[in-house]
Design a protein around this nucleic acid. Structure first.
Lengths: 257, 257
DNA sequence: AAGTGGTCTAGACCACCAT
DNA sequence: TGGTGGTCTAGACCACTTA
């Protein structure tokens, strides 16, 4: 049996034991994420200071910071020097720089303007149910939006949501929201979209979408299939976008992740 | 006037002075990047240990690690516990997970097989010269590749390189390289592609590419315009890819950067 | 056994913000 | 002025690799 070591390591041993499995800061990150998922801190709100959080989790401030570092990198939290650490909100900037990759061909980022075209309910198809983590045949909301950039129709979005997770979401609520769509999910339903995966291919316009975009039916467009995820990779939303790339493009940065 | 503080802070003051401008670890990162750009450490080689690097730059190991952390996040360096820190190489894995976003529709990642179709030289067009940081009319290499996935032709790549930066790059050298294209740039020319920006739109196949892909001319395909960058965001390569998305898709993860 | 990266702690000071 | 995040240091031990 080893004699107790002197100095910091003794406290280390007391506080953490032998950390064979997951690192402490990962565990702290899990606890923070859990608190966020449970709504302990609301979007836009400040978390307790790093000192207090470190005390609460019984870790050093360095370890606490390492956990927060990762959540900041994932843009779940936002640090502001001198003010505090905040739960990121789905405002125009986050939308523009994180969840909207369509830019003008000259590279300029433009904020889209959404208009609800259809709003309905039906049963989830098999593939949709699987991707949303629902039972086959569960009720879903279906929302079609026409998105304009600088006044011109550029893309059509078809959104699929689990009806059970968005109670009382009516066309009126959706239409009269303030701010972004993910902002609505966040403030009204405490569902926080933090990541998304998109798959792109070429598709041909069907008549309905073609009319909205002012293009002939059968015109080739960029199809984007998105799955939006919340904490713990829980799927929240399916979205299929059809984009007229005549004057706009989809941008993607490689080698940062 | 304050009396000299005791403990670590005194050393802090001596070593770093007042760090008003850029943080020390950013400066260390700059020095590391400079060394990498200068070829001080070759791809696949181990850097000196963190202890030695910290001594060399006269910073604490924590500060050194923070600088290395960022280069690891950017996938310029790779850490291996117990072995060392290495300059990342452009092998199949990095290609597959970082610089090739085409997957089978079922989501499976497949390693592409490249075949040189054309290899020539000409003058850079105005737009190309600008994007490559060249003077108007400088000589460029033009390489057309047909990329197959599981034996089937799926995309055509048109690559543009500054001839001056790739001396003696002949069709034979290009064709008989071992490994990936970026691996060739890295080992033969010490040019290390670390990031890329891609812009996607829909295009219609011209006859030449159509023939290679086994599709009719005018068939709609996914067009990807890539600018590949080295250290300090220096442009290295332009690449235009035309992708048949009948059985493959382009994937993009949002919310990680 | 020696060397490397990985984790954790403790404490100091700086920069910034609100009051 | 007091609180917050941001940077930097110093040192210990753990986990892993290599010889």
């Amino acid at each position: 049996m080893n004699a107790p070591a002197t100095g910091p390591d003794m406290i280390d041993t007391l506080a953490t034991g032998i950390h064979t499995a997951a690192p402490l800061y990962k565990e702290v990150k899990r606890l923070l994420t859990q608190g966020l998922a449970a709504g302990e801190w609301q979007p836009g709100e400040a978390l307790p200071s790093e000192t207090r959080l470190a005390e609460r989790f019984k870790v050093s401030i360095g370890t606490l910071r390492k956990a927060v570092d990762e959540l900041v990198a994932e843009q779940v939290l936002v640090r502001q020097q001198g003010r505090g650490t905040f739960v990121a909100t789905h405002g125009a900037n986050r939308m523009l720089f994180n969840f909207f990759h369509i830019v003008r061909t000259d590279g300029a980022r433009v904020l889209p303007d959404a208009q609800v075209v259809e709003f309905g309910r039906s049963k989830a198809e098999a593939g949709e149910a699987m991707r949303l983590g629902l039972a086959a045949g569960e009720r879903v909301l279906r929302i079609r939006n026409l998105m304009r950039l600088e006044g011109k129709p550029v893309l059509v979005d078809d959104i699929v949501l689990a009806a059970a997770r968005f109670p009382d979401l009516t066309e009126r609520v959706f239409r009269e929201r303030e701010g972004t769509i993910y902002g609505l999910y966040q403030t009204r339903y405490a569902i926080n979209v933090v990541r998304a995966r998109e798959r792109l291919r070429v598709a041909l316009l069907e008549a309905g979408a073609a009319r909205l975009l002012g293009l002939p039916a059968g015109h080739p467009v960029l199809e984007i299939n998105r799955t939006a995820l919340s904490y713990h990779d829980r799927p929240v939303e399916l979205r299929r976008s059809l984009v007229n790339t005549a004057h706009h493009e989809y941008v993607s940065d490689l080698g940062k992740a």
